[in-house]
């Protein structure tokens, strides 16, 4: 009995926090838009009992999903989001791996401090951190002042409101999600493995590629998914740092919802986004599981 309860609690949360909201969104995606409160029809009216419920079901259709296929905006936005997510995940890996590596190789006494420094930015609001990047990257911002002051450039660079700024923002924001899992795998790694590789004829560099990288693979995969999954649907960073040419599905969804007041189409966009995300999430879970099995747990 108690055991059943213990198992039931997490499932209940999953049901309440994931499945129910998803079903609501799915239902809206099958509805039609209307100028009313709420701005779609049909709404569920249980006063008419079973017949009312059947009428409600009968009024749902897939029209909004077919609509999404008629305009290239949507798949372009999905593709562009995917592209931005892939590129920024790669960039985050490029920046994050050396940091994680440096931390894992640092003196043991320093590691908690370094770890703290990575986590520290989380203690301030995400929004404030993104806003401060606006201050750094703008035309008259600190970066341009510094570069002009140093004489590196003569004219200020336009970085804010471009895709470059979006990449900077994403890499900055999600860096800890990349660093922490990689650090965890690197820190566990036995340093004598690298000596063994060198002893067996590897140069430092090839030891890194043949031993360090494969052994941190699970951390790299975990980190990449942790960055990739939220980046696809990212809205705040492209809105604040991106320019008008930054096309992302999060923004399209916003426009469907707010500008067109078309909740059903917005919901359809969200449902498809979720389906796209389910694939990497499943792969991620599988990686985690394989990792646990490999460690014999």
């Amino acid at each position: 009995m108690r055991r059943a309860l213990v198992i039931a609690v997490p499932y209940f949360w999953l049901l309440a926090l994931f499945l129910v909201p998803f079903l609501i969104v799915l239902k809206i995606s099958l509805s039609d838009t209307e100028l009313a409160i709420p701005p779609y029809t049909p709404t569920l009216d249980l006063s008419e009992g079973w017949a009312g419920f059947r009428a409600f079901l009968a009024a749902l259709d897939l029209e909004n999903f077919t609509f999404l296929t008629t305009d290239d905006l949507y798949w372009k936005a999905y593709l562009s989001s995917l592209q931005i997510a892939v590129v920024s995940t790669f960039l985050t890996l490029l920046v994050g791996y050396p940091i994680a590596y440096g931390m894992a190789r640092a003196d043991e006494a320093w590691r908690p401090t370094l770890l703290m420094l990575v986590i520290l930015p989380f203690w301030t609001s995400f929004l404030i951190r993104v806003y401060s990047w606006m201050g750094i990257l703008s035309q008259e911002g600190y970066l341009n002042q510094l570069l002009v002051g140093l004489g590196v450039i003569s004219e200020p660079l336009t970085i804010l409101n471009t895709n470059t700024a979006v990449y900077i923002g994403i890499v900055y924001t999600y860096l800890p999600f990349m660093i922490l899992p990689i650090y965890a795998t690197l820190e566990r790694m036995d340093a004598s493995l690298l000596e063994a590789a060198e002893d067996l004829g590897c140069s430092r560099l090839s030891a890194f590629w043949l031993v360090t990288v494969p052994l941190s693979k699970s951390g790299i995969i975990a980190g990449c998914f942790l960055v990739f999954i939220p980046t696809i649907g990212e809205f705040v960073i492209p809105s604040l740092l991106g320019g008008s040419q930054t096309l992302m599905i999060g923004k399209v969804l916003w426009e469907e919802f707010f500008s067109n007041r078309d909740w059903p189409v917005a919901s359809a966009v969200a449902v498809i986004l979720l389906l796209i995300l389910v694939i990497p999430i499943i792969l991620f879970q599988r990686n985690e599981q394989r990792q646990r099995e490999a460690e014999g747990k």
Binding site: S192, A196, V211, L215
Partner: peptide
């Protein structure tokens, strides 16, 4: 060299 921990490559 044969290491005390054996240092076998786990992967």
């Amino acid at each position: 060299m044969m290491f005390q921990s054996y240092a076998l490559f786990p992967h």
